[in-house]
Design a protein around this nucleic acid. Structure first.
Lengths: 335, 335
DNA sequence: CACCTCCGTGGTACCGTTTGCACTCATTAT
DNA sequence: ATAATGAGTGCAAACGGTACCACGGAGGTG
């Protein structure tokens, strides 16, 4: 029923092979036949069958995208939507399709990967989260599959493809901006230490202090949970121990808690910054400065990196994307 | 290199056809050979090649999903993410894959559909928005493709598959709740009339008034834009004309504007409700009552409806999903 | 005991494209 | 004029499955 390459061939008076060559614009085809075939394709409304093509060249021009199913991630700002948009943008440009799937846990994730890759549905996959000693990564490497990770895989460094937000630079910028405004006694509230982002952001904090010659005070650094409650409690604890100029945090949620604590303590001259630029940050009183992660760029670059490496082994294996520090009232001098 | 059906056949000492039959668990296969084949598949770690299978039976077990690229939609709550989750949940259960693509405008959308259906051979598509006289719908119908729409396609009524939020019921509930609390002079602020949601929500409003025997006042109904500004202006205009008990709106953004107007006018006894249950609604002062649309259920049911109809023509062609009215301070009696 | 049925299986022709190999026919070198 | 070259194209065999058709043999029937 659908028009095939044979129909086109018949109409143009050539063999199917020739039509195929025209499509793949093979060099050695005369302009005359090229035109005849093109015309036939046009009038027959021919569309190559991607499935048949995939079978023949063992490549699907399709990428798999694994998304985490956790509720926290879902509610949190439109991070994943933006990532997906970015991926879609590049993929479309490169003629690739994207197949997505939500998974609940590692086991299901591996099952999905196995299915996707071995049943030959996808040429490569994009992972949007990564744990320590991630079994998915192990699985993918063991089976020599192509993949890219959004996030920094600490164990495998240069051996696998990844793109990430430049957390060190971002937090550096935040702290630098505070110092430039005259703050010196700056505390750091982070999430759990096992999360890579916490560690990287801490490094950015330390780097900035060092650069400005401000001594690092270990007792001003507390790593707890990624929750509002933790932010509130830690902020209160910090002020029992010392007087501070400013507090930087590794997440808006933590900052929200800290803001509440500052309000209760009447410390409205203390500067405060969040991270991830949640919608709510802008609507707090005062609005909280935050770091806007370029999620769409992350997706775009991830797709680009993977697709590039699919075509030919490239020597660029990762990509750091700069975030933007959005300054709001919470980190500006109060009168 | 990869193990094929032939390898399995050889190992089990049967023909490829038999292996194929075992996979598709064809009825007329003896238990003995079934076991032998199963064992061979297990030891060879055999995974059927989905591409080859698709080529042979002209079905890909894959659905296409078209997402709008507009920024407004992106910023607005996690609606689409939830829809995607729901789709993924059902699709996984039914053994289907989902290809997604963002599109900017109708033209690109049609191009994508054409590609997806004619080239990539997806078995059906899910549309997440629908316009009046939607050309995509026309295209799909003209080419006899399977598809489902999220939203109500007014022109084609029963002829096409769709799922939608039950807007009439939802707004009915909102108004009913207000009336039960003693409100009688209830105004309605909506978005543009050409949006189906506006009209449906208006109908719910009217239905509730009628049910409670409250006369409908056309001058208390204003339809303008889906913006905060519009909400603000319309609310002010309404109060120049009449004293009101309550305002219902068709969107949180409108409600935010109206809330600002009420504050300025000092009308804090007037009840106010939003729609779509944006994250911000909860954080306004006072928190704004809103209608929580079950986006994940929409996605789930859309996938279900489409896949069901792919297998065999069913007579259920659409599905209305009830939303949940979340009451907050803004619509409760103020002391 | 010959015949029909039906179960379980193998043979084979596809599904729509790609691609290495071979062939034809001009063109150029000798 | 003849051989060598090479551009342009056709043939046929894959790619990995599926499914129709046919066939051998076991069991039942008259």
């Amino acid at each position: 029923m659908p028009t095939t390459i044979k129909d086109v061939a018949k109409m143009a008076g050539v063999s199917p092979s020739t039509v195929s060559r025209v499509i793949g614009n093979h060099p050695k085809i005369s302009q005359a036949t090229k035109d005849r075939v093109a015309e036939a394709m046009e009038t027959l409304q021919y569309r190559p069958n991607a499935i048949a093509r995939s079978l023949a060249n063992k490549t699907t021009k399709t990428l798999g995208l694994l998304l985490p199913n956790s509720d926290e991630d879902l509610l949190q700002n439109p991070f994943y939507v933006q990532v997906m948009r970015g991926i879609s943008r590049y993929a479309q440009k490169a003629g690739y399709y994207i197949l997505y799937s939500y998974t609940d846990h590692e086991e299901q994730e591996i099952k999905m990967l196995d299915e996707l890759l071995h049943s030959k549905w996808v040429d490569g996959v994009i992972l949007t989260t990564i744990r320590e000693n991630d079994r998915c990564v192990e699985f993918l490497r063991a089976n020599q599959h192509h993949f890219v990770v959004i996030g920094t895989p600490e164990e495998h460094g240069d051996e696998i493809l990844w793109v990430d937000n430049n957390n060190i630079n971002a937090m550096y910028e935040v702290v630098a901006s505070l110092v430039e405004k005259g703050h010196k006694r700056i505390a750091f509230i982070g999430g759990p230490h096992e999360f890579a982002v916490t560690r990287y952001r801490l490094r950015g904090y330390q780097k900035a202090l060092k650069h400005y010659g401000i001594p690092f005070q270990p007792e001003w650094v507390v790593e707890r949970d990624y929750t509002e409650k933790a932010g509130y409690e830690v902020a209160k604890e910090l002020f029992e121990r010392a007087e501070l100029d400013a507090i930087v945090t590794t997440d808006d949620l933590i900052a929200f808690g800290a803001q509440k604590a500052l309000l209760e303590l009447g410390k409205n001259e203390v500067a405060l910054t969040g991270f991830n630029n949640t919608i709510l940050a802008e609507y707090k009183t005062p609005p909280i400065s935050s770091v806007d992660i370029k999620a769409e760029a992350l997706g775009y670059e991830a797709a680009k990196l993977l697709i590039t490496n699919l075509k030919e082994k490239s020597d660029v294996t990762h990509c750091l994307i700069d975030a933007e520090f959005i300054e709001r009232e919470s980190s500006c001098i109060k009168e």
